[in-house]
């Protein structure tokens, strides 16, 4: 008979090892449907690995894909830490992207050096504003924020489609529903010549460091963690739960909004309604893999991005559907959740 007893503290080695073991478990589990589908499992996995990191170009593509995941992963990590389950990063990303093209494509006359800052501020504000509603509904009326943020994702995507067919439509876009391009002075420039990886990556890494400092070294971070760990005790200690929740909502929604700005200003140049390939939802997986630690979001985002990029390459070469990437990532989330138990509890044979 196995019994589980709570750990007083988790050894560092275990904290580092468990996500790795969980990911390996996810890969093993995903091999079952792959094998059942008659796919060559080893060739497919080797294809994903070389597609993600087999060349300099592959590595920069993985970094490019990791950029939005860093933002959405941080958005989820901060919010989940305060037990504010923001599942609306997908919608916040799109609204942030819409705000970015609204101020950054020349419709508003701005001095050239101010265009990029205006894009970032507008995208942050748009994402933050979108998350404010569900956060206030939670604190004021007790409405479950998971359901409201999920439902808002659909509303925002339809709103963006409406804008792209209406006032935001590029008259030079050949009839396609796409926005006017971001001005050259508003672009996040590429980091290397002839590579797609752009300055948005540096911004995302800076955000990860800032978030780590905020959560670990400031009073606000302490309050956020306290509210997440024990809301009742926090209230007793005089922490304003509403204030903390609203602040977290603004930070989380804003970070997800920046993901949208980074994609349009750094990668695509203009907005279409297929900007995100589920980056908002993948951010939840990234944050969970990272154990909600902002700095750990960096390797987690690289891993998830690598799986997606690698699977695209592998799918072209080996012919196995690239939905295997979504499958691996989803299984990684479930495996990490189970793995987290071993961090908090010690198995004992008796």
């Amino acid at each position: 008979m196995i019994r589980f007893e709570p750990r007083t503290r988790t050894p560092l080695a275990l904290r580092l090892l468990l996500p790795v073991l969980s990911v390996l478990a996810a890969l093993a589990l995903a091999a079952i449907p792959l094998a059942l589908a008659g796919a060559p499992v080893w060739t497919a996995y080797a294809g994903i690995a070389t597609g993600a990191a087999g060349s300099l170009f592959a590595l920069t593509e993985t970094l490019t894909r990791a950029t939005p995941l860093l933002f959405t992963g941080l958005a989820a990590a901060i919010a989940f830490r305060a037990r504010l389950f923001n599942i609306g990063a997908e919608g916040q990303l799109y609204l942030g992207a819409l705000a970015a093209v609204a101020v950054g494509s020349g419709a508003i006359a701005l001095p050239p050096p101010l265009v990029l800052p205006a894009i970032l501020v507008a995208a942050f504000a748009a994402g933050a504003l979108l998350m404010l509603g569900p956060a206030l509904l939670k604190t004021r009326l007790g409405v479950d924020e998971v359901v409201t943020t999920l439902l808002l994702n659909f509303v925002v995507l339809l709103f963006v489609q409406m804008m792209l067919e209406g006032p935001f439509k590029d008259p030079m876009g050949g009839g396609w529903p796409q926005s006017e391009p971001i001005l050259p002075e508003g672009a996040l420039p590429p980091l290397f010549e002839r590579m797609r990886v752009h300055a948005g990556l540096l911004l995302a890494l800076a955000a990860a460091i800032a978030a780590q400092v905020l959560m670990g070294r400031t009073t606000l971070g302490l309050k956020i963690r306290a509210v997440g760990d024990n809301p009742a005790a926090s209230r007793f200690a005089g922490i304003g739960i509403t204030g903390v929740t609203v602040t977290v909502a603004v930070l989380s929604g804003g970070l997800a909004g920046l993901a949208g700005a980074s994609e349009v200003a750094g990668l695509k140049g203009y907005l279409t309604s297929d900007l995100s390939r589920g980056f908002g939802y993948a951010g939840i997986v990234v944050a969970t893999l990272a154990g909600l630690q902002p700095l750990a979001v960096v390797p987690a985002a690289l891993f998830v991005a690598g799986i997606f990029v690698g699977a695209d390459t592998m799918s072209r070469q080996v012919g196995v559907s690239n939905y295997v990437a979504d499958l691996i990532v989803a299984l990684a989330l479930l495996c990490v959740l189970v793995g987290g138990l071993f961090q908090r509890y010690r198995p004992r044979w008796s």
């Binding site: 989940f80 998971v146 939840i284 979504d326 990532v329 989803a330 479930l334 959740l337």
Partner: peptide, 8 residues
């Protein structure tokens, strides 16, 4: 979180 994971 588990529910979202099961959906994915």
């Amino acid at each position: 979180v588990t529910g979202i994971g099961v959906t994915l």
